[in-house]
């Protein structure tokens, strides 16, 4: 039983998960090139193992954090490390839960590298929280946990939509230049990609709105003010307005095609900047998730 509470065990599980995801990225690309059912089987197996490892790492971190502060409050997400783990798991769930199988593997060619990059971000940048789950008492709140979960669901939908947007732009380029190639055959039609992108953003947007509301409620309870125009708060409202404008433009001007795809690509890039970049590039205090 003690092994569960040992940070080294959780650490090993985290690195095994990272390795499995990285392997899944390679195998997924190999599937496109070789079109072999054997490679597909390996990819599916590795992906399932990676996801299981991901869920196990989340549970381990929660159990360990719970054991560390059992007299205070149980099972709450408290730091950016846990957020990234949940975010990554949500990307897999949204990718394979919302999309049909053939489209899911197609979009995974881009969403899996995002997962790899996020986990490497944990290793290279966050580092310490991998072992240290202590956090200021102010972060130990169900409202904040709700905020983190809804943000993870919303961001993961935007991440998969980002992959679809990239796929659309590649498909468009290939059809304009009349090149088919391996990718041209692999990618579905532009109409399908456009609709998939919209469906993902439409799925994620209410969760994004809910996350803003939950974050504001937490800030009000913890800090006594629900909105203070901090950079992360302000960026989130900017994205909210931008996505709201996207839905209106799509309705008003039937905005489809490459403009819509660019919106998906830029939207998620900006969200990633808000998540990672603000803490490093802009002055002032910022919450890291």
């Amino acid at each position: 039983m003690d092994v569960i509470f040992n940070p080294k065990f959780e650490n090993a599980m985290f690195y095994a998960t990272l390795a499995a995801y990285l392997m899944a990225i390679v195998l997924n690309w190999a599937c496109i090139v070789f079109r072999s059912s054997l490679v597909e089987k390996y990819r599916n197996g590795v992906l399932i193992a990676a996801f299981a490892g991901n869920v196990a790492t989340i549970l381990l971190s929660l159990v360990r954090a719970n054991a560390l502060s059992i007299q205070l409050d149980p099972f709450r997400l408290v730091n950016p490390y846990q957020f990234v783990l949940v975010f990554v798991a949500c990307i897999v769930l949204v990718n394979f839960g919302l999309l049909r199988r053939e489209y899911a593997h197609m979009s995974a060619t881009i969403s899996l590298p995002i997962i790899g990059a996020l986990l490497l971000y944990v290793v290279v940048i966050i580092q310490q929280p991998l072992l240290d789950l202590s956090a200021s008492m102010i972060y130990r709140s169900w409202w904040l946990t709700g905020y983190m979960l809804t943000t993870a669901v919303a961001d993961s939908a935007f991440a998969v939509a980002f992959g679809i947007g990239i796929a659309y732009l590649i498909k468009e380029y290939l059809s304009k230049t009349k090149k088919r190639g391996v990718l041209g055959q692999y990618l579905p039609s532009m109409e399908i990609l456009d609709e998939l992108g919209y469906r993902l953003v439409a799925f994620g947007f209410p969760f994004f709105s809910l996350s803003i509301i939950l974050g504001a409620i937490w800030a009000n309870i913890a800090l006594g003010q629900f909105w203070s125009w901090q950079p992360k708060e302000t960026w989130s409202i900017i994205f909210w307005l931008a996505y709201l404008a996207y839905f209106h433009v799509r309705m008003l001007h039937d905005w489809r095609g490459s403009r819509s795809a660019w919106m998906l690509v830029m939207g998620f890039t900006a969200i990633l900047f808000t998540f990672i970049g603000i803490s490093y590039f802009l002055p002032g205090p910022a919450i890291n998730f």
Binding site: F205, P206, S209, L210, I213, N220, G224, F226, F247
Partner: peptide, 28 residues
């Protein structure tokens, strides 16, 4: 200590919930 008096807060929360409901109806 941070002391706040927020007489319109319930309106804000109700508005947020209504907004969210509208969003689910529109997009889902």
């Amino acid at each position: 200590l941070h002391a706040t008096s927020q007489p319109g807060l319930n309106f804000v929360l109700t508005g947020a919930l209504v907004l969210l409901g509208g969003m689910f109806l529109t997009l889902y």
